[in-house]
Design a protein around this nucleic acid. Sequence first.
DNA 1: CCGGATAAAGAGAACGTTCTCTCTCATCAA
DNA 2: TTGATGAGAGAGAACGTTCTCTTTATCCGG
Lengths: 351, 351
Amino acid sequence: MPPRPPPRITIKDLARDLGMSVATVARAFHSGGTIAEATRRTVLRRAGELGYQPNALARSMITRHTRIVGVVLSDLENPFYPQVLTRLTEALQQVGLNVMLVVAEPSGSVDAALRLLLSYQPEYAIVLATTLTTDAAEACRAAGTPLLFFNRAPAEENACAVVCDNAVGAAAMADHLVAGGARRLAFLSGRPDTSTNAERRAGFLERCAVHGLPAPQEAPAGAFTYAAGYAAAQRLLAGPERPEALFCANDILAIGAMQAARREFGLRVPQDLAIAGFDDIAMAAWPDHDLTTLRQPIPAMVEVAVSWVHRAAAGEAPPKGTLRLPGTLVVRGTTLPDTTSPSTPALENQA
Amino acid sequence: MPPRPPPRITIKDLARDLGMSVATVARAFHSGGTIAEATRRTVLRRAGELGYQPNALARSMITRHTRIVGVVLSDLENPFYPQVLTRLTEALQQVGLNVMLVVAEPSGSVDAALRLLLSYQPEYAIVLATTLTTDAAEACRAAGTPLLFFNRAPAEENACAVVCDNAVGAAAMADHLVAGGARRLAFLSGRPDTSTNAERRAGFLERCAVHGLPAPQEAPAGAFTYAAGYAAAQRLLAGPERPEALFCANDILAIGAMQAARREFGLRVPQDLAIAGFDDIAMAAWPDHDLTTLRQPIPAMVEVAVSWVHRAAAGEAPPKGTLRLPGTLVVRGTTLPDTTSPSTPALENQA
DNA sequence: CCGGATAAAGAGAACGTTCTCTCTCATCAA
DNA sequence: TTGATGAGAGAGAACGTTCTCTTTATCCGG
């Protein structure tokens, strides 16, 4: 048994110091309740002097609101997610919510960590960049913690998710590549078991069919990493029918693929091979990559997520279903500019 | 006032269901205390069926141990820190500690967020990649929360910190650049107010003096970003005396600088200009960068940090002072290989 | 001058645990 | 048989808050 740390100053100490009752002092710290303005000021001033601050744990016990939001995360190596995590955390902090982080790396340790998280009675759990096992999801349900999937559309019907509209974005990218003159397209896929990969692929292939093109070649990278993109592109480009344009399931893959095209095959991008990604991570805008991509609407996605969490903390039931927000096509130097007249079928949601 | 969520199942419910006292059920869940093995199994089985799990908040109230560790973070855009955060969080999870995240972005909102964190009575606060205001540090002291600086060596005497030995690492890099034949060296600095920048600069300049070289040129980037590195290198290389080797305060700066050298001046790296960084982020190993750098000993740093936190949770006083762990020189393609005989003064701590 | 509002403050229960005592009862040596 | 022993279980306080209820002080119309 670990020994106890020195006791911190409590509301009782403060009340005794001020010669007031505990109830009065407590009233000074939260909005409801009737207290004279002068008294409140006295209490707060003295609290500041003594360095007293209400114990959030004790408060949470009785209010049954912890103001804790769990964030479950894997794949922080993909530069897209640090950006998301930063913005999400900041936005939650802004409304007085605290983030408890669970890193769900490779093995099945997710469940243990999630269970630990749930024991802190988080008001919401935001799952970033990963899906949960059935057991884990069930544990959340049993604990009464609503789940919000961010950037993943889970298969379950009554789950709640915020994602970029991957299919529409991928279709827009198909349009752009075709408008640049490409006829032989290819798709470089990431982790096959992710909704992001599946939706981008489906949206892309479908749009290619609409354009009357042959089915794009496919290069499975298996993971959303630079190395996987490099290797997959190497295999693809060594094939007999080299594509003219390559759409990658995300930016990191695209950057890896581009490097493979340049180094291993001496190809010029975009003249010999147009390359495009998805996400618009910061790196995509660097001059050495200058990557055409589809920007995910992170601010909007974060805003939606935070507002749902915030409203749930106020008692509102979380919405069901998957909300798809439109991304933006960002044309840079790795694809050819549109040459055809804009006669391709109109497509919504690109702004 | 937000309405109360539906009540979760408590230890009382479980005790009533089992026909046992609350005390007996409680004993089944923690190691101390005397309980028959059969009883414990019965309790745990039924708890599993009913989905009961002890409320960590209530437990923390009485044990005075929250098993919460605060992690204060800025600059998650620098790819070095996601890696650190991931490993740190995983390691803490492994020993049953939970991470509460505070993002301290630009403005003075750090203090508010930190105060919110402190109200959850974290057992430790790990400050990553940033320093705290005096007020914030004082608030931690008053709250009895020990502070651990990670990758920052604070000026205060009695602070506790784990860092890479920046000075020794920078000196090793100076040796390497000199061994490659360079005589005109330069240093590209990041945020001037950070200990990492100051120590790397000092170690580098000092070692250059030991080699009898003229004082290196200095290019202030002002921030640890790609864009800042690009711009600073552009200014530096436009000057009259172009350096032969450029040591950058971190990898992101180096990658930006390298791109500026290639694009803006058509320089070949390393023949016309050798470039080196610090950190060894994943990107440094990519073939398009292939950056010589000094690898920070993240696993060792994390291990030390976690062991301190873990021991503090067991009641041990946190150590004072700054622990400097040696990094590793990683030679890649952006610097010339050693040409001189290894006659330079010996330098410790490079393994 | 009185009775009833109303504002302000106090007393004590409650939240869901763990901790400290106390009690019961089987075991066992003498 | 008896008393000491100890394992196992129960009762109730405690943690630091907020909530509900009650009490006290103040004001005002009639």
